[in-house]
């Protein structure tokens, strides 16, 4: 849920969420999603913004059966850690797949989907999810 409805917040994160914009550290080579000012691994400032690869593999996953507000009516759904080609790890929902068909190591690809509504009359927030590669 969002505690306070906020169009600016949705707007501010939009591009990074829509286009999988990650950060590449010029010092340690670390790849993180999303892009940010400072490398969490070595403290280097000035990460390069890069569009991350759209394919990867499931590292681990969980099935959400008791959803938080804003996600009611979607359960059960799957959240997963996806390791993209190149090594960046992204936490995202898996989609177009039944929970019982998900496997660790499964190959997945990015799609653009609806995540949540800030409220029934509020802003709709979109972002990248992953589906089994087709």
């Amino acid at each position: 849920m969002v505690w306070v409805e906020s169009a600016p917040r949705a707007w501010r994160e939009g591009t990074r969420r829509y286009r999988l914009i990650g950060g590449k550290c010029p010092s340690c080579g670390g790849l993180v999603y999303p892009h940010r000012q400072v490398c969490p691994y070595c403290g280097r400032e000035g990460l390069e913004a890069v569009a991350l690869p759209r394919r990867g593999r499931v590292v681990t996953y969980a099935v959400v059966r008791n959803p938080p507000r804003g996600f009611e009516g979607r359960e059960p759904y799957v959240i997963a850690v996806v390791e993209l080609e190149g090594g960046a790890r992204v936490l995202a929902q898996l989609t177009d797949v039944r929970p019982e068909d998900v496997r660790v190591g499964m190959e997945v690809e990015a799609v653009f989907r609806r995540y949540r509504e800030q409220s029934p009359s509020g802003v709709i927030e979109y972002g990248v999810k992953f589906r089994p590669a087709i």
Binding site: T95, V111, F112, R113, Y115, Y126
Partner: peptide
Amino acid sequence: PGPDEDSLTMAYEAAR
């Protein structure tokens, strides 16, 4: 459509 799809998300997939 899946529960997280609408005309806009489908438009994006085709356009990409």
